Every structure is written in structure tokens, then in C-alpha cells.
Amino acid sequence: MLETVGLTAPEGDVYRLLLVAESASAGEISGRTGLDAPVVLRLLGALEAKGLAYAVEESPGWYAAIPPEVALVPRLQRHAEALDQTRAAVFDMVETYRRVARARGVGQTVEIIDGAAALRQRLRQLQDGARREMLCFCKAGYVAMSPESNQEQFAAHDRGVLYRVLYEQAYFDDPGSVDNVVTGVRAGEVARAVPRLPLRLAIADRSVAVLPLAPSGAPGGSPRELKAALVRDSSLLEALIDLFEHYWEVGAPLRVTDEGRIGGAGPEDPASPAAEDRHLLSLMVAGMTDEAIAGQLRVSKRTVQRRIQGLMNLAGVVTRMQLGWHAARRDWL
């Protein structure tokens, strides 16, 4: 899975083919992969824009791969380092809490929930009380509330609450999981996927979090023995939010087709930007200022900013860096 380093599955296939061949043309790649030549040209252009391939000057129309240790390993290392730093910060917060809990009486900051029934009730209360945003980690299986029984999510959608949900790859092995995700996305959920999640987590309005204290593996044990933590406003809560955002940045977006299938957005996706916005994105990713982009497109600076904000809303991101990342991953460039 190369989505973590910014490659779609088709881009990864073409890149692997270029690694095997000294160089290849779009026609040769089309013959080996069965993809149409225009699609191959688009994929080669995307790989070149991402710094993974280059056009061979001596042979027009031919491309060669940039070695993965140059093009991919640094990206992977940056993400791994960011996740390691966040994981270390969380464990440091946990140790700090354990060390000083008695001295400063933080019983009101972290509350222990006993039993599956109590956890189910708290999860419902958490969603009923949400007014702006819910952040969730969904692992395979469930420990207290099945996805089908979570009607509170749809009521929250009706109130305008934004759900950002990360699913780990193993989640989709559960029966009915794809249908559950499709239903959620169609209701307004913004979903992404990662290979693995470290824990189960739900955060409401960035002010309170709930996480089961069982090991991160498959759920087990008696429902009465289940314990969870409710974490209120604190440095530990901030660390959990940071952990969510780090995984969110590397997650692969999940979109739902008209046929009810899960798939990433491509050029044929109606949610993809128009051609003029793709041009704007390419200028932004190239590092041009808003003034320079406005000059290139012959529009006002305010128009450039408004269109970039619209693209951020379309991609479901909050920063321009995230927009550039997801534009590359969704093949919007």
C-alpha cells in the first residue's frame, strides 16, 4: 500500500514497471498493463510531478524511474518520524499522569468507565452532545457498540456535526463493514483508511475523548470486565488529538461511487476539480504565491484565495499543505 507516500494504486503499478525496465514509453506500458494510452500518459505525468519519474531527453515519449531510495524513502521516513514522535508524546503523557495523579488529584480529568453497557451509554452521550466535530478511530470488530446500532451518528449529521473517521485495513474484513462505511459516507461522514490503527478512539468537539483500555488487538473478555477511559480537557487529550491528526494526514481518502462501491476519487469522479482548478493546484504545489498565481491566471488575488478555499473544502482538509498532498494522491494535478 503506497498511499502513505502519496501514490495511488495505478501510479504504483506504473512506477514498479518503470523500476524493472530501464525506460519505457506510454505505448509499451499500455501494452503491459492493459491501460489505455491516455490514462498511462496521465499516470506518467503524475509520477513526474511527484518526483518519481522523468522524461528521457534522448527518447521523446519515454520515461524512466527515479530510484525509490531517492524518491520514496525520505517521504516514508518523515511520516514514520512524525508518528514516532506523537506516539512517544502520548506515552510520555501517560507516564506523567501516572506519576502525579495522586498529588494533583486528576480524577476529574480521567474517568474510568467499567463495563460494555456503561461504555455504550457514554459513547451515545458523547455523540448526542457533539455540536461541531467527531473524530474516530475504527478498528476491526467492536467492543461495545456495533456500527449498525449507532443511530446517534445520523442524528448528529442532521445537526451539522462533521464526522472524520479513520478505518484500519482489517476493519473491512468484518461482514457488512463496506455497507456500513458507504452508509456513513452518504450521510456526510468524511472517511479515510490506513493500514493499522494503534487504538480505538472517539473525540467530541476536541474537548472530551473515550478510548477502551483493552489491548489494541481483537476484542475479547467479558463485557463486564471491559474498562475504558474518558479523558477531558488536558495535555493527554491534546496528545490524543495530535495522534488522530497525524494518522489523518497519511490516510487514504474513501469515496463512494454512485453504485455504492468504495473507491478513491479520480479524474472521472464528479467530485474532482475542473480543469482550471487543476491548473491552479499545479501552480500552488509548485510554490507560487497567490499574487503570482493570480497573474498567471489573470484573476484577482481574492479569486485565487476563494478557489483554493473551495478546493480545501472539496478535499476535506484544513491546510494548503494537506490540499497539495491530497491533490497529488487523488491525481488532481
Score class of each variant (00 low, 15 high):
T4H: 03
L7E: 06
D13H: 14
D13Q: 15
S23I: 08
A24Y: 04
S25N: 04
G27I: 07
G27R: 14
G31L: 15
T33R: 08
T33I: 01
T33E: 05
D36T: 14
A49E: 15
E58Y: 12
S59L: 13
A65G: 06
A65P: 06
A65V: 06
I66S: 08
P67S: 04
E69C: 04
L76Y: 10
Q77R: 15
R78L: 02
H79I: 11
A82K: 04
A82N: 01
A82G: 11
D92M: 03
M93V: 05
R104W: 07
G105H: 12
I112C: 03
D114K: 11
A116K: 03
R120A: 15
Q121G: 11
Q125T: 14
Q127K: 12
G129S: 15
R131F: 08
R132Q: 15
L135M: 10
K139P: 05
G141Y: 07
V143I: 05
Q151P: 01
Q151D: 14
V161S: 10
Y163I: 13
V165D: 02
L166S: 00
L166H: 03
L166F: 01
E168P: 05
F172S: 00
F172G: 01
D173M: 08
D173S: 11
G176F: 05
G176I: 06
S177T: 03
N180K: 05
T183W: 06
R186Q: 13
A187L: 08
E189W: 10
A191Y: 00
R192G: 14
P195K: 07
A202R: 11
I203K: 00
D205K: 10
R206G: 08
R206C: 01
S207V: 05
V208A: 04
V210F: 09
V210P: 05
V210W: 01
P212H: 07
P215M: 09
P215G: 05
G217F: 09
G220S: 13
A228F: 09
A229H: 08
A229W: 05
V231E: 07
L236N: 08
L237S: 03
A239E: 02
I241N: 02
D242T: 15
L243H: 10
F244S: 06
E245D: 11
V250N: 00
R255N: 04
T257N: 09
D258K: 13
R261A: 14
E276P: 04
R278I: 10
L281S: 00
M284L: 15
M284G: 06
V285R: 13
A286E: 13
M288N: 03
G295M: 03
L297I: 13
L297P: 10
V299M: 12
S300L: 04
R302K: 11
R306L: 12
R306T: 11
Q309K: 07
Q309V: 04
L311E: 02
M312Y: 00
N313S: 10
M321T: 15
Q322D: 12
Q322E: 13
Q322G: 08
G324Q: 02
G324N: 08
H326D: 03
H326T: 14
W332H: 00
W332C: 03
W332N: 00
